[in-house]
Structures are given as C-alpha cells and as structure tokens.
Amino acid sequence: MHVPDGFLDAPTSIATGVAAAGALGLALRKARGELDDRTAPMAGLVATFVFAAQMVNFPVGLGTSGHLLGGALAAVLVGPWTGLLAVSVVLIVQALLLADGGITALGTNITLLAIAGVVVGWFVFRGLQRVLPKRLGLVPVLAAVSALVSVPAAALVFVGLYAVGGTAPVPLDGLLAAMLGWHTLIGIGEAVITGLVVGSVVAIRPDLVYGARPVLRRRELEIRQGHRTGTEAAA
C-alpha cells in the first residue's frame, strides 16, 4: 500500500521529494558502476521484473494472500544502486499510469520503499556478508535476514515522517507500535519469499546475483602443457 496524496503535509511532501530526487541522481551515476553502458535497458527490465514479482500472490491461508515488496530482493539481485533505480521507477510508473500512490507523495514513497527499503536491506546484507563465512549457500539466508530488517525499517521511517508532517492527531507511540508490529509480520513473509527467490536464482545462475559475486569461487583458466598424444606415448 502506497502513501496517497494528503497523508503528509505539503512541506514534508516537498522535502521528501527533494531527498528522493537527490538519491535518484546519485543512483543514476552509481548504477553505471554496476551495469556500465547497459544501465537503461537493464534497469528498465529489472523494474519490470520487480513490478511483475509484486503481482505474484503468495497465499497466506484463510483466503488471504500477500505480495512481495521487493526492496531487499532487488538490492541483492542487482546491487543497491540499480535496485534503488528499479524500485523508484516502479513507484513513478504506478503513480503516473495507475494512480497507485499520490503524485505529491511520490517523494515520500520513494524515500520509504526505495531508499529505506533497498538501502537498509543492502547494508544488512553486506554487513553480515563481511563477518560471516564466505559461502554461496549463505547468500539466500542473508537476503532473507536483510528483507526481515528492511520492512520494519521502512515502517520506522514512515512513523518518523509522520511525526514531522502527519495530518491526523494519532498518538505516536500507538502508531509506532502498530506499524512496527504489523510490518514485522509482513517482514517475516517478505524474508521467506526473498530467501526462496534468491535461492532459486543462486541455484541456476549464481553469476547473475550481484550479492553473490564476492563469494563465487573464481576458477582460473588453466592451460595444460606437456600433454602427450597417444602415438608419442607409445613411442
């Protein structure tokens, strides 16, 4: 669910818009380091994938189902900068073409889901990867943990924004408890799905997973010399 128009007051909306624009500018420059000149088509297709993956309904039971938010997933699969770009572009298209999330709240939504979601997810993932054994099998587990942290983190940022520019007098401690509690539950689902998706990609094409690159075993090209042919060996 995206933040609609009028949820936060105008100054807060403009401030988050400026923050989002700054982050996007930085991400555009940094994503070239992850994708070189392929940035435009690759980030575009990754954004399409994030959008499509959000459409997959994961049944929870009792007739309800949930879907992926995809911040931590995008960060682990394609890197933090490309991930930030892709999730932001999804939000821009949803606001402009689908009226999902208000246009004045676009900066807020990018701040929450792209900046907080992707960046927190990435820092958790990278931080854990540094201190834990460098094993490929750990990548999906770390991705799950980063998803578990990133969802409540985004909720926390939302409560922070609400404390600054909220338009309804809701007691903050109650809002904080409700948002954190609810989003921890969502985070658990997000963690399981993120771990499973990353695991399935790592099993087939580990070279595509940005977060797995540091732990992929590099095999040197071996040119063997002195191999004798059969006739030589017989002679």
Binding site: L45, F49, A52, I193, L196, V198, S200, V201, I204
Partner: peptide, 13 residues
C-alpha cells in the same frame, strides 16, 4: 511461486 519468480528474474535479466 518463488521459483517462478526466480525464473522470471533470469528471463528478464
């Protein structure tokens, strides 16, 4: 579903 999403990522990439 997750394997399908993973396959979708590889195909999109």
């Amino acid at each position: 579903y997750a394997r399908a999403a993973g396959a979708l990522f590889i195909r999109s990439y």
